[in-house]
Design a protein around this nucleic acid. Structure first.
Length: 325
DNA sequence: CTCCGGCCCTGCGCGC
DNA sequence: TGCGCGCAGGGCCGGA
């Protein structure tokens, strides 16, 4: 269940069982889930057994279980299809069970933290925690040091994102999915936020104005908070919280997966405009062709080099309206 | 530095 | 019924 709201749902569910729990002997059903862990299964098992865990933390889509009294953590990434389930010992094994960590919870209850991952793009790994100056000195795993603050972080700064975004020579959705610019956004919430801010996914980043970025970041925060409030987005049983329950946000999506269905915003104005699905990086983008219109053709390199800004906009107005890329 | 494609995987639904 | 293909919520790496 991969984007920020789903990862946060998992973190919260995990907090009850993992915080102040004592870990038992890790069982590795598929070592590929430990690909990124130095020393593999042996090293992780040795480090974990008998260790006390602290409150689970998260940045963007990265989760981690800090080890109490040490600057180390078990990082958990769900990848495309990962789940963390909390089960009672003896509960039937899940089909794609990869890792099993028995714990004694703070209240003395015996439980198992199970990592279930169909595609094995996710995994667990042991990592060192370092203070992150950009985040008030809070700890961050070394392998997540390049991950930017996410839109729900208290220190998140939309204007700082804008400063970096506007300097890029790229397009908007690509930038939104770049976890080193702003983290936690994946294909679903990118499409939703772009719809919310009425922006086209292929809009050149250099053409973003501060107000555009602010509106877009506000849209990201809004959609993520709404998704979080209802347990995240689940299309099927593959994406569930630690109790195995699905979230309900799929029914509230405005763009993602709504190909051929009416744009809800346009419908409010009594206009029918159908959501389109377009190829994007071996995946797809979903948008409303009416309220997220195709941007004007990108400025020529010479115009950019000349530092031309808003002065040019009126002159470009008559250019073709449907150029691609 | 930035970018883009390829790759890491499994399973499902669809068309033939 | 079977098979190949395209597609799915992510991220890392190497080469340009």
């Amino acid at each position: 269940m991969p984007e920020l709201p789903e990862a946060e749902v998992v973190r919260r569910g995990l907090a009850r069982w993992a915080t102040d729990a004592v870990a038992g002997a890790l069982q590795v059903h598929d070592p590929r889930s430990l690909r990124r862990s130095p020393g593999g299964a042996e090293a992780l098992r040795a480090r974990l057994e008998g260790a006390r865990l602290a409150e689970p933390a998260r940045r963007g889509k990265f989760l981690w279980l800090p080890l109490a009294d040490a600057d180390e953590a078990v990082v958990v990434h769900l990848g495309m299809s990962g789940q963390i389930l909390v089960d009672e010992p003896g509960a039937p094994d899940q089909r794609h069970l990869r890792l099993r960590l028995p714990v004694i919870a703070a209240d003395g209850a015996a439980r198992e933290l199970r990592f279930v991952d169909q595609r094995i793009f996710g995994g667990w790994w042991l990592d060192a925690l370092h203070p992150d100056d950009a985040a008030g000195g809070e700890p961050i795993p070394a392998t997540a040091a390049h991950i930017a603050l996410d839109p729900l972080h208290p220190l998140f700064d939309a204007d700082a994102v804008h400063a970096r975004l506007a300097r890029r020579r790229s397009t908007l959705k690509r930038a939104l999915l770049d976890q080193s610019l702003v983290s936690g956004i994946g294909n679903i919430y990118a499409d939703e936020a772009l719809w919310g801010a009425r922006l086209h996914p292929e809009r050149p980043t250099e053409r973003m104005r501060r107000a555009d970025t602010r509106r877009l970041m506000a849209a990201v925060q809004d959609v993520m908070r709404r998704a979080l409030a209802v347990g995240g987005t689940s299309f099927d049983a593959l994406y569930v919280n630690v109790d195995g329950r699905s979230g309900y946000f799929a029914r509230s999506l405005d763009a993602y997966g709504r190909t051929g269905r009416p744009c809800r915003r346009c419908a409010e104005e009594a206009v029918e405009s159908l959501i389109v699905r377009e190829p994007f990086m071996n995946r797809a983008s979903h948008r409303c062709p009416r309220c997220q219109p195709t941007p004007r053709r990108r400025r020529a390199a010479s115009a950019v080099a000349a530092g031309a800004g808003t002065v040019l906009t009126s002159g470009l107005r008559s250019e073709g309206s449907h150029p691609r890329t």
